[in-house]
Amino acid sequence: MKVIKTDNITYRYPDGTKALNNVNFSATNGKIVMLMGPNGAGKSTLFLHFNGILRPTSGSLEIDGTPVSYERKDLVKLRQKVGIVFQNPDDQLFAPTVREDVAFGPSNIDLPEEEVKSRVKEALKRVDMEGFEERPPHYLSGGQKKRVAIAGILAMCPKIMVLDEPTSGLDPKGAFQIMRLLCKLNREGITIIIATHDVDIVPIYAHEVYVISEGEILKKGTPKEVFEDKELIRKANLRLPHIAHLFERLQDEDQISFGKSYPLTISEAKKRIVEKTRDNKKFN
């Protein structure tokens, strides 16, 4: 089932420039969907359509099977269902303490106080930030801020979580922790949609991939299908994952082939290399 489905969305900025052009994007329930594109491709603009912040100039979108309505009370419901985690956590964390920030969302949907408190506790536990309740956000590290921002969305119990560049600006460990957390949330049933230009993480985590460039979707499919089209990837100012690039060069420059398609992840590459060396040994 598709939880998000856009039908030829076009969005023009007030000055007339097209930010999105006939975008058809859909996300399957319970999957991790990655939207891959360079800076300024329209990823963030598309995301702001998912919870009704922006309204398409033309085209329509369905969330969870129902067309989006822009009535005030329907928007409140929509925004509970679709949570957006913004790229810069400093834009999102506005409250003086972690606890009050996480409580902001659930308080706005008029839950009873006790429910809000238990949701805050639960959300902070899920992102592994218990014990930071009274801290002001400016004394947290980048990764911690990001996790609090995610907790703020989790506290609203969304069905779909949309994240704009969740690993940008984080150190490798922080980035890994965020991705691991997102996988955990996905296993718990939340559909995760991620915008990124970090091509190396795409084949590791994504179930479905979209390539967007200059406001248009160029390709969709599994990571394998998408990265097969090298020309398209490069035309979109992206690149192959490093590991695939290595295998491409081995094949093109040294005529050493490890199979038709390039492996996209380290573990896949390892498997191919092991297989190949075993075969060679047999012949020797």
Binding site: I53, R79, G83, D91, F94, G105, M156
Partner: peptide, 10 residues
């Protein structure tokens, strides 16, 4: 940007 983020949380 902060306002957009807040709006996203109702």
């Amino acid at each position: 940007q902060a306002y957009t983020a807040m709006e996203s949380r109702c």
